[in-house]
Nucleic acid binder design. Structure first.
Lengths: 139, 139
DNA sequence: TGCATAAATGCATAATAACGCATGTATGCA
DNA sequence: TGCATACATGCGTTATTATGCATTTATGCA
């Protein structure tokens, strides 16, 4: 398991950034992190977005390879956060924060995320997936 | 041939916007219009991007359906412009303007576009595709 | 040192999307 | 009224991508 800090301005083509956001689940992930400004481990994302672990693991990988997320491993947990400080990416996050939440689905993601963050100890996640049926398969 | 003014905030899902930009040719189109602030007919796009007419016609349609472009028909010509005034779209265009032009390819697009715009009369395009081999097929 | 657990991934399948070729549609002009 | 032309599109092919199931890897703790 290796994590890369991608050299944006030289390696990532524009369409690859947008392609990374072309999937609804990946948009939910990035919107959640852009809206809350938090970093999150995978099990927190699972409990917030209510999607299977393997699915989010893959999507997070795509976002990482596109240079939108960086990951830091801490013990068994891997914390994901937005790559910030790159002008065009920061604008992109602004755009995401300005998106309307038509059906209120995103508000629910944020609410579940905030609840889940309350279970942290010393600002770190100490538990795993709290929605058992998502730990290894579909809903 | 009908053109729609899409109701953004209610009809277009976030990922559809990004999916529209997930193709390199479509990124070139939107970047060109965002950078120059111009509107453009299809034949001007063909001569600027050096891509076949049918290809750009399709890509422009995708961008239109995603709500990024609006189109106005004037005689035989159809002028395409960015949909502006929607906060998250305007941010998106800002992001596009901030993208680095690694290989200089985009600068060439802009240069060809500006040259092509010099052939307008009274601010309107009066000619067709000037690169014959692109009028109906590949290069 | 073995077990529980957070996260990653190989594989097969299904859905999606881009492309080239050719043709169709619509508009203006002689 | 017929022709030239700006733009749109149906079709078949190919390439890419998302998903679910199952399993593997890696880390901490008893």
């Amino acid at each position: 398991m290796r994590y890369y800090a991608f050299m944006h301005t030289v390696q990532v083509k524009p369409q690859e950034i947008f392609q990374a956001l072309a999937d609804p689940t990946r948009v939910r992930i990035v919107r959640l992190l852009a809206e809350t400004g938090e970093e999150s481990c995978l099990c927190e994302l699972v409990d917030s977005l209510l999607e299977p672990q393997y699915k989010l693991s893959r999507h997070v990988k795509v976002l990482r390879q596109a240079g939108l997320l960086s990951a830091v491993k801490e013990g068994r947990w891997v914390y994901h956060r937005l790559v910030e400080g790159i002008p065009y990416l920061d604008r992109l996050y602004e755009a995401l924060r300005l998106l309307p939440d038509v059906d209120g689905g995103f508000a629910h993601d944020v609410e579940r995320f905030r609840q889940r963050m309350c279970l942290r100890e010393d600002g770190r996640c100490r538990i795993g997936i709290q929605t058992p049926e998502l730990a290894a398969g579909g809903e």
